[in-house]
Design a protein around this nucleic acid. Structure first.
Lengths: 150, 150
DNA sequence: CATATATCAGCGAGACTGACATAT
DNA sequence: CATATGTCAGTCTCGCTGATATAT
């Protein structure tokens, strides 16, 4: 199997990792374009949504939930805070932590982004039927492992 | 639907684009780790494989096949050429073009990488049965659009 | 002239690293 | 002391932009 001279790969394009990468790139592009309408980058939106969902939450915890490096959370939150979408205040129960909270304006932006992001995803998966979309999500969820599914 | 105050997104983690992005990142990591054994980056490997498959081929054509910017092909091929895996020679029929060709050593490296990449993909999709893998590829292929399927 | 190819220089986003201060 | 958190500075890859030279 490691003999040289064999037809090597057919093409890398038949590798699942390649195909899933292309689909991910397409999806990222569509969502990024949609969110630009609200002036948000992909990661900024993810952080904003996670902050809204997990209530007042520490930066490191946000990083763990989204698999974002805690060091990168600093600049992400600086930007969101500068836009007035979140606030940072010291956590009285553990003064090492910043309690991050969504503002009212943050919730408004988020509601609009939800529509935009869903529309982008419908465009991404438009060729699939509802049942197929659900199946794709199920399969991807199992591949990903950690609790994420349809 | 754009009313503020609504539960915003459940979580972005339920968006297909997010899930497919996470799976892609996992796959990229696994394959990158595997290919590092042969000293190749992901894109270098893709270019090498495409060069082997499409015979002597112009740089711009490689870029089109792999959706890689032609400007980035320069450095990618510089590296592959420096490793002795491909050669660049002027195309007599159109002297604007470089005819890129795999070397014998390139084919050997590629054969070993094929094994490594396949192993990484089996690790990625390990939780799925054969039938499910095929189904996932079918669905992703349809979402991606351009000719790519299992 | 316009077009295509290849090269070079640079930017920005994402995912990292190391070093450091502070609080537990 | 070790650990966790947050901040700052810098690196690297990847996907782009612009400008340039050459060939068609």
């Amino acid at each position: 199997m490691t003999q040289p001279g064999l037809p090597p790969l057919q093409h890398i394009q038949s590798l699942p990792s390649w195909l899933v990468g292309r689909v991910a790139a397409k999806g990222r592009g569509l969502v990024a374009e949609a969110l630009a309408e609200e002036g948000l980058k992909l990661m900024q939106h993810a952080v904003l949504a996670a902050t809204a969902e997990y209530g007042p939450v520490a930066q490191a915890e946000l990083g763990r939930r989204l698999e974002v490096d805690p060091k990168d959370m600093v600049m992400l939150l600086n930007h969101l805070q500068g836009m007035g979408l979140v606030t940072r205040s010291p956590d009285p129960s553990d003064r090492r932590k910043n309690a991050v909270t969504v503002t009212a304006e943050g919730l408004e932006v988020l509601a609009r982004c939800a529509v935009l992001a869903e529309r982008a995803n419908e465009e991404l998966l438009g060729v699939l039927g509802e049942e197929e979309k659900a199946q794709l999500m199920r399969l991807l969820g199992r591949v990903y492992g950690p609790g994420a599914a349809g």
